[in-house]
Amino acid sequence: MGRYDDSYDANRSETDETTNLISSEKVDGTAVYSHDGDKVGHIHHFMVGKRNGHVEYAVMTCGGILGMGEEYRPVPWDALEYDTDLGGYVINIEKERIGQTPSYARDQEPTWDRSWGSTIYSSYGLPY
C-alpha cells in the first residue's frame, strides 16, 4: 500500500490532531486571545508558503457583526502560542496594539509581497 493507493477510502476517519500536528480544518475558527484572556478574534485561514509548505500567517478576523465590517489581520504564525486551558491561540502583543497591526477588508485583499510581509512582521516585533 503506497501513498497513492487506489483503495483509499474517502469515508474513513482521518486523524486531525496529534501531539505536534493539527489539521488546518480544525484550526479554522479557533479563538485568538490576548494575554489577559480576552477573545480578540478567530483564525479565518492560513497563508502557506508554496515552496516550503510552512504556515507564514494565520489570518485572524476581528470585529464586525455577522460578517459585516470584519477586518482581516495577518498574524505571523510565530506570534501565536496555543494555550490548552483556553482552547485557543494567545497573541504575543498587547491587546491595545492589535488594532494598530496591518489589516484589510474582505474586498480589499492585499498584495502578499515582501514589503507587506515586512510590515506585518515588524508590527509584531518579529524579524522578517
Rank of each mutant, 00 (worst) to 15 (best):
T15V: 15
T19E: 14
V59R: 01
L21T: 13
Q100Y: 09
F46Y: 10
R106T: 03
S103Q: 07
H45R: 14
D9I: 08
E14N: 10
G87V: 02
Y82Q: 02
Y72S: 02
S23E: 07
E70H: 04
E96W: 06
Y104C: 07
Q100L: 13
T30S: 11
D85V: 12
V32M: 03
E81K: 13
D28W: 09
G125N: 08
W116G: 00
G2P: 14
D113Q: 04
G69I: 03
G69H: 04
Y57L: 11
D113I: 05
I98S: 00
V32W: 00
S123M: 02
R97L: 14
M47G: 01
G29T: 05
V90P: 08
E71N: 14
I120K: 00
W77K: 10
H42T: 10
C62D: 13
P110G: 03
M68A: 10
A10Y: 05
S23T: 07
V75L: 03
F46V: 02
T30C: 08
T111M: 12
H42F: 10
T101P: 02
C62G: 10
W112E: 10
A10H: 06
W116D: 07
P74I: 02
S7D: 15
Y82P: 01
T119M: 12
A79H: 05
G117V: 00
T84C: 04
A105I: 06
H54R: 14
I93N: 02
D38G: 04
E94L: 06
K26R: 14
K50T: 11
L66A: 12
D36M: 02
E109R: 08
G49S: 12
G53W: 05
Y8D: 09
P110F: 00
S123E: 03
Y57F: 15
A31V: 05
T61D: 08
T61S: 09
Y124S: 03
D5F: 05
D9M: 04
V32N: 02
E17F: 06
G41I: 03
V32P: 06
V75R: 01
G125Y: 07
R97Q: 14
W112I: 13
Y4A: 14
E17G: 07
V75P: 04
S118W: 06
E70Q: 12
M47Q: 10
V75T: 05
Y8M: 08
Y89L: 00
G53K: 07
M1C: 07
G69P: 06
D83M: 02
P74W: 00
Y124L: 04
E94I: 04
Y33C: 07
T19R: 15
M47R: 13
V55G: 04
K26W: 01
Y121W: 05
I22W: 02
H54L: 15
W116P: 01
T30Q: 10
D113A: 07
A79W: 06
L21M: 12
D78R: 15
Y57Q: 05
T15C: 10
